[in-house]
């Protein structure tokens, strides 16, 4: 199925409590080689037809205005899988 994948991450300088909790659990399990964990979101927008350039532009806008909050998050990638 053609899709656009939008990936959103918490801003780099922001505390990511979920990532921190997972990192702590990994350290408890002996994975001290992992220095940090950050958790973001992968959002798939599905289409019943091929994805166009206009769709990608719209997805970028949707990503920045709705799927992420610019105060706390960044859209790190918008990719197409046709």
């Amino acid at each position: 199925m053609p899709k656009i994948i939008v990936e959103v991450m918490p801003k780099a300088d922001l505390l990511d409590p979920a990532g921190k909790a997972v990192n702590n659990a990994l350290h408890r399990n002996g994975h001290n080689e992992i220095s940090n964990v950050r958790i973001g979101k992968r959002i798939e927008l599905h289409f019943d037809r091929a994805v166009t350039d206009a769709d990608v532009a719209a997805a970028q806008k949707i990503g920045e205005e709705f799927l992420s909050n610019a105060v706390i998050e960044d859209v790190v990638s918008v990719t197409v899988e046709n």
């Binding site: 918490p10 409590p17 979920a18 921190k20 909790a21 105060v71 706390i72």
Partner: peptide
Amino acid sequence: LVESHLLPGGLIRNDVQ
């Protein structure tokens, strides 16, 4: 209100988790 941009900034998970 912050998501509607009627007030600025954002609210994130409590630092105490």
